[in-house]
Design a protein around this nucleic acid. Structure first.
Lengths: 339, 339
DNA sequence: CTGTTAGCGCTTTCAC
DNA sequence: GTGAAAGCGCTAACAG
């Protein structure tokens, strides 16, 4: 049986209230000898407070929830890593929660985030990553069902605290870069739900469009059934067969760029000579390709650390005015687009 | 303010016990009209039970903890993904916890897993991934501090429920394969803590040694300061300068294999012509290389699903005899070793 | 069929 | 300095 405060108290011949006081270092006016005795006995018995009980009593849990669209993707894995680092540093625990299909529905359309699961644990704060066109019911200011809430990523809800990464400039730069290295036909490779985007939703899209307009070229979209590598592989060959092959492809994300990369090579196209490729997200795998993938890198670590500090401030004072930060992503030119 | 059972009860003009009964679908003998009324009012008020309170009352939390050595690595990311799928399916929540340096200490030496953080939340079960030579204090049978515990991976504690992946056969097969494709000098690339391994600790090591013995060749070890890509990059050039270059390298894991791959290419060695390479873990990134990496693939999805079912059984009946499964990994031969 | 009551293990007043 | 007692929000045993 796990020892409780009462058990410790009994052996230490004090009341359980005193044990609690000692162990929480509250109330300095405690006889040093009592304190020592309690501490010794508690550690002898291997006492660990029951955090549910503590949470119930205090209303604080020392835990936060992380919500991500897709736990499979290495991109969101990086978020988990960095947020987890923060929790370690600040002695919090981390609940991880991802999208169930009906939980998030079709991405891209206006979707409603099913928050019942997300909020079911009374965590102290919630961090959500990338909420494209999402409606989050129960949001009031920066509180979701009363719980401090922050969202972070390329897509944010501006009604709550957020840390956004701005892809606009590097997206423009990326498409210009493709033009500069001599691409005459630059396509944008996107997941099929991009149709539901209004241009301002996706800075990559608006960046792409604006540069194409400036170049006097028609935008060209290659549409993949999803935002993953496999989706791209399933459609690219047919697309090229039907429409011919662009000589530059700007990709919605790195996973898709990698899909395109592998598929193009299978089709005998050389990268970057025949097709120059640019991805987005800066996942580490982009470096593994040969030539390595040119990509747009969000400062994930910094984003997570800013998000964390915002969240802590919000927890301290829920009435704080909106906290927002916008960080810059940067274009990292590598071999896949250099010629 | 969040509505509580009492508040719902008040408005529904019943006792809070009845509300609890209705909402938990317990005790069928409830007037249908009462049931309906309570359900309607609860949903109108957006009532969500406080799970801390429920956990305190029932002793069950409907959550499990996942412990991994290293949250950064994509390999452990895959574990998180698959375990998370299980939690979704079975309506559990997932706490994620990783190693803090002092929490796990030097891997390879006999180390003591700091369980205080791991157990601080009263979860219903604990899943630990890869515990090489770890001592876990507080283990009694398959219970860790009274909580059902299962460990999974290439390294397991056989004193508790476990699901182990067996790398032995594919490791032997891998080294033989390297010999078959004509390698005359086959090295094993390992993290420096391999020195603390006794051969039986690491099936790759014992497999490697046995094949080398059969071939009548001297084992050759390339030692990297850690098990990551960067570590390998930092030592490989110097090693080759000093000792010349093996024509086949068996690698402790895929991350290291990728490190070797990129570094070798930088040094102007062709893969597989000059050096044939085999990794281990089957991370998806291994496919991104060109040529793609030959690797040993553990059946992660199956491992996680078996581990989950073991854990659920253990939760149901903590006195169950030890549950153990050993699944086979398989060698996936790809371009990096074919010639 | 439903209400009353007693905890779950802890923190936190309020007395003494 | 320390104990007694209340209560966090819920479930579950016991009445009726």
């Amino acid at each position: 049986m796990k020892p409780s405060v009462r058990l410790v108290a009994e052996r230490a011949k004090v009341s359980h209230a005193t044990v609690s006081r000692v162990l929480n270092n509250v109330d300095v006016r405690i006889a040093p000898e009592t304190r020592l005795r309690v501490e010794r006995i508690a550690s002898e018995m291997g006492y660990q407070p029951n955090r549910n009980a503590r949470a119930l009593a205090t209303g604080r849990t020392q835990s936060v929830a992380l919500w991500a669209t897709n736990l499979r993707s290495v991109y969101y894995g990086e978020y988990i890593h960095f947020i987890h680092e923060e929790t370690l540093r600040h002695d919090y625990d981390l609940m991880v929660s991802g999208a169930k299909v009906p939980q998030y529905g079709v991405v891209g359309k206006d979707v409603t985030l099913d928050t019942s699961k997300l909020m079911s644990w009374p965590v102290d704060g919630i961090i959500a990553v990338d909420l494209p066109r999402a409606t989050v019911p129960g949001m009031k200011g920066s509180l979701l069902g009363g719980i401090p809430f922050i969202n972070v990523g390329g897509y944010v809800l501006e009604s709550a605290d957020y840390v956004q990464v701005d892809f606009t400039e590097p997206a423009i730069e990326a498409v210009q870069h493709l033009a500069t290295v001599g691409c005459r036909r630059i396509a944008y490779l996107v997941p099929d739900w991009f149709e539901w985007f209004i241009p301002s939703d996706d800075p990559r899209l608006s960046g792409y469009k604006s540069v194409m307009a400036a170049l006097g070229q028609e935008p060209e979209f290659i549409v993949s059934p999803n935002e993953r590598r496999e989706g791209v592989a399933s459609v690219l060959a047919a697309y090229i067969e039907q429409h011919g092959c662009p000589d530059g492809i700007f990709c919605y994300n790195d996973e898709m760029a990698i899909g395109a990369f592998l598929e193009l090579r299978k089709l005998g196209r050389r990268i970057p000579e025949d097709v120059a490729l640019v991805g987005c997200d800066g996942i580490r795998e982009s470096e593994y390709l040969h030539p390595p993938l040119t990509t747009i890198m969000p400062p994930l670590e910094e984003m997570c650390s800013v998000a964390w500090s915002f969240l802590m401030k919000r927890i301290q004072d829920p009435t704080l005015p909106l906290q927002a930060a916008r960080l810059k992503a940067r274009l990292e030119v590598r071999g896949s687009s250099q010629r």
